[in-house]
Design a protein around this nucleic acid. Structure first.
Length: 287
DNA sequence: CTTATGACCTGATAGC
DNA sequence: TGCTATCAGGTCATAA
């Protein structure tokens, strides 16, 4: 569920509860969702027990709690993951709570909950190790980096442009929702081969992606089903979706019937008129 | 090297 | 009601 805007919203909502506070204890209920830098079993120490949180970083769809002593807790929410701040420990009947921390903050409990377990935790003794093992594998962050820096990566190779947008090594943070929304806004069909994208079109696309993500951050992300920020609040950007989840409905721009299909293994929706086929588009979107 | 495909999980929903 | 099938915001390993 969580793409860049949702993860950034979690980061921001988590910050007042954690930064400057101390982790008093850490408990891992499911060892297999956590990987340590040396493959040894996680301990409360590797999970930041007794650390003071200096800041929370994000790259793409990943978060990292950075302790003042250098320790790092890297969190990926996968498809269904949540990081939630609570006043109380969860009830014993609450499912899929895989890790829990108590903190010095006024709301004293943080949990990592992830029904599908596509997400996980990674622990490192230093930020350098986080970068070396994990974040250096990602492309530039789609929100923080200049579009001109990563636009060329959208033209590399020969594949559907949507697949390039979803490739976290090309640019980090774009997922299925915002890929479709950005392609609709700029008028490029998701199946367009990257070889057929002009330099100008790739720059326009990258710029549009960043705008779409920034607008969603401003709306605190999209809540389709279970996405919530750290305080449990939903986002409201789903009200602005133009194509995602609207296959078969009318295009809000031209009234055509929106098409749906699979592109790069992912459900994809586009407008056959506003997002013309490849040859037509290369004439249209060139600058 | 690149790109495509199935696998990994659980829960919600639709259809019979 | 209850069963089965399908689908979901993301990667990952393996095949071609």
């Amino acid at each position: 569920m969580p793409e860049l805007p949702e993860v950034e919203t979690v980061r921001r909502s988590l910050t007042p509860h954690l930064v400057g506070e101390t982790i008093l204890s850490a408990t891992l209920f499911r060892a297999d969702i956590c990987e340590t830098h040396d493959q040894r079993p996680a301990t409360d120490d590797t999970l930041l027990a007794h650390a003071t949180i200096a800041r929370i970083d994000r790259k793409g769809k990943q978060l990292a709690l950075i302790a003042t002593d250098g320790r790092v807790l890297n969190i990926h929410l996968g498809m269904s993951g949540q990081v939630l701040i609570r006043d109380q420990h969860p009830e014993a009947t609450e499912n899929h709570v895989h890790a829990l921390w108590t903190t010095s903050g006024s709301r004293a409990v943080m949990i990592f909950k992830d029904p599908r377990r596509f997400g996980g935790l990674w622990t490192f003794p230093t930020i350098d190790l986080l970068n070396e093992r994990r974040w250096s594998l990602l492309g530039p962050d789609a929100l923080d980096a200049l579009p001109s820096v990563w636009a060329p990566a959208l033209r590399r190779g020969d594949r559907a442009v949507k697949a390039a947008l979803l490739d976290q090594r090309a640019v980090a943070g774009v997922g299925n929702i915002y890929a479709d929304e950005a392609l609709f806004r700029i008028g490029i069909r998701p199946t367009t081969r990257t070889k057929r994208l002009s330099i100008a079109a790739s720059l326009q696309l990258a710029t549009t992606v960043r705008s779409v993500l920034a607008e969603s951050v401003a709306a605190r992300g999209s809540t389709l089903r279970d996405y919530r920020d750290a305080d449990g609040f939903p986002g409201r950007q789903q009200l602005e979706h133009r194509v995602y989840g609207r296959s078969g409905q009318t295009c809000l721009t031209c009234g055509s019937r929106l098409r749906g299909g699979q592109v790069g293994q992912r459900t994809t929706v586009w407008c056959p008129k506003c997002q013309p086929s490849q040859t037509k588009h290369s004439e249209r979107v060139k600058l």
